[in-house]
């Protein structure tokens, strides 16, 4: 359910704020952050599955955006650029935690066996949001990102492609594979 969104690079007010923020205007940057924080948080929450991790990731993302704004060339919209930073930070978080806190995709059980001790419980709540959250977190990050961006954050395939650094067609294929994988997970847990 990708909803068409306005490309923020075409927003003149946004462009002015970016210019001012690039010159160190904190008020302009606060306005940019206020505009984009909800969407960034939505993406971070679905990517990490944890409200506290999502908050940390968004804070770090906005701080990084502030520090690197002088290098932002404006080839894409500010929203696209800052979301790309966010996705990268989610990857970093995942990598940093991998040795001690593996995410579900690395705890695959043998074929034909229940996917986890909680499989029965999950089967009961297969249609619940918890089941969706679990299924989402079970996807590899390279599938989770396009799915989150298109289905949960409303980015178009073109915008998703720009965020992930791939073509619109590739973004569409990745998102579709992720949907299929999510549907498979949910079907198994029903």
């Amino acid at each position: 359910m990708t909803r068409s969104t306005d490309d923020d690079s075409a927003d003149p007010l946004e462009a002015v704020r970016v210019e001012l923020a690039r010159d160190g205007d904190e008020v302009a940057f606060a306005a940019l952050a206020r505009t984009h924080q909800d969407r960034l948080y939505r993406v971070a929450l679905r990517m990490t599955g944890s409200p506290s991790d999502a908050q940390d990731v968004v804070q770090e993302t906005l701080l990084q955006a502030w520090q690197h704004l002088p290098g932002f060339r404006g080839d894409s919209g500010f929203g696209t650029w800052v979301t790309r930073i966010l996705i990268n930070r989610c990857h970093n978080l995942h990598r940093a935690r991998r040795p001690v806190d593996p995410l579900p995709e690395e705890t695959e059980s043998a074929p034909g066996m229940p996917h986890s001790p909680a499989a029965d419980t999950l089967a009961v709540t297969a249609l619940s949001r918890d089941a969706v959250r679990q299924a989402l977190l079970a996807l590899p990050l390279d599938q989770r990102a396009p799915l989150v961006l298109t289905t949960f954050a409303g980015y178009t395939f073109a915008e998703t492609g720009r965020i992930l650094g791939v073509s619109e067609g590739a973004a569409k294929v990745r998102a579709h594979r992720a949907r299929r994988a999510l549907a498979t997970q949910l079907r198994e847990w029903r």
């Binding site: 940057f29 606060a30 952050a33 924080q37 909800d38 948080y41 929450l45 968004v58 804070q59």
Partner: peptide, 12 residues
């Protein structure tokens, strides 16, 4: 889903 109220303040 909305960002926590104190997020922007913390960032700024």
């Amino acid at each position: 889903v909305r960002a926590p109220a104190d997020l922007l303040q913390a960032v700024m």
